[in-house]
């Protein structure tokens, strides 16, 4: 016992020193956050997955040379084979090729809708929480109007107003419309989260101290309130990314969202739903892509949130 003790001690003594060096940061909030991020395996796994997905979206020809629109009804519902490794759907499309080509519209809708919701909701929430009083009442009541609309009903009303049923619509136009529809119907959620966080942060003593120093409203919001309110909105954004891809699929299923010739995972899932028992691969593969994509963004959001919270280090 006494002989092993000296051997144990240096290790024990070294540990606090090691953590001491680890807590000695060298940069500002962003540099420290990045230094933390680099050390997290979760961040690298998520980044690698997102990298592959982005590559898929930008250069689908790297992954497949098959035309996603090429359909052969004779091969309808074919099982996976060397010819089409994920099998074929009801129309005889190659599921693998469609899944690859579906990445771009899916990710575009998910990312733009998340970004739009968070930016619009955060700005409105920050203004409401910081200004308070009448400004807060005005913004909150306005948001409630949109929050009160059921998503499906709102989506149907907006999208059928702009496009006649059955009308052939260009890819850019329909993606823009779907994104804007989702943003308009979903921003009140982000606004409420941001407003609650901003209300709390505005009451904090460090904001009082900054005002006593003579800090203007932009400095207070930008340097003190925003950094302390971003975490919940960031988490919300990563969760909503998956929800929005699902919402896009719902709109597609109703025939008012993305539609042929645009391929998205949501479109593929909604097409496959009718024949799940006969052609399970038509549902399984796009759903698997969707799950992996959502998981990657949730993991990234988690890692980023933790890295930028000094208290968690």
């Amino acid at each position: 016992m006494t002989e092993t003790a000296p051997g144990v001690r240096p290790a024990g003594a070294a540990a606090p020193e090691g953590t001491g060096a680890g807590t000695e940061h060298t940069g500002g909030l962003w540099a420290d956050g990045w230094a933390q991020l680099r050390r997290r395996p979760l961040f690298w796994i998520a980044s690698a997955l997102i990298g592959v997905l982005l590559l898929m979206a930008l250069f689908p020809s790297l992954f497949t040379s098959v035309d996603p629109q090429a359909a052969d009804l004779a091969l309808s519902g074919a099982d996976p084979s060397p010819d089409a490794i994920f099998g074929r759907d009801l129309q005889g499309h190659d599921i693998y090729a469609r899944a690859i080509h579906g990445a771009a519209p899916t990710l575009t809708v998910g990312l733009l809708a998340s970004l739009g919701t968070v930016v619009l909701g955060s700005l409105a929430g920050l203004a409401a929480g910081y200004v308070g009083g009448w400004g807060d009442s005005l913004i909150s009541r306005f948001a409630e109007v949109f929050a009160g609309l059921p998503f499906i009903l709102g989506g149907i009303v907006i999208l059928t107003t702009f496009n006649k049923p059955g009308q052939i619509v260009g890819e850019v136009r329909i993606i823009t419309q779907v994104v804007l529809t989702i943003v308009v119907l979903s921003w009140p959620l982000a606004m409420r989260i941001m407003r609650a966080a901003a209300l709390e942060a505005t009451q904090q003593d460090y904001v009082k101290a900054a005002r006593a120093l003579g800090a203007g409203p932009w400095r207070i919001v930008g340097r003190h309130i925003l950094p302390n309110t971003l975490a919940p909105v960031l988490v919300f954004a990563t969760i909503q990314f998956g929800v929005f891809i699902g919402a896009e699929a719902t709109l597609s299923f109703l025939g008012i969202g993305l539609r042929d010739p645009v391929v998205s995972w949501g479109v593929m899932i909604s097409e496959a739903q009718e024949r799940v028992a006969d052609i399970p691969q038509a549902l399984f593969f796009p759903a698997a892509f969707l799950v992996v994509a959502v998981l990657a963004f949730v993991m990234l959001g988690d890692a980023v949130r933790d890295a930028f919270d000094p208290r968690g280090r």
Partner: peptide, 20 residues
């Protein structure tokens, strides 16, 4: 404001947790 400053009561909320 340069001539008159304040020290606040609660040292746990008077410092921004995200700043060095």
């Amino acid at each position: 404001r340069r001539d008159m400053q304040i020290v606040l009561q609660d040292p746990y909320t008077s410092l921004n947790p995200r700043k060095t």
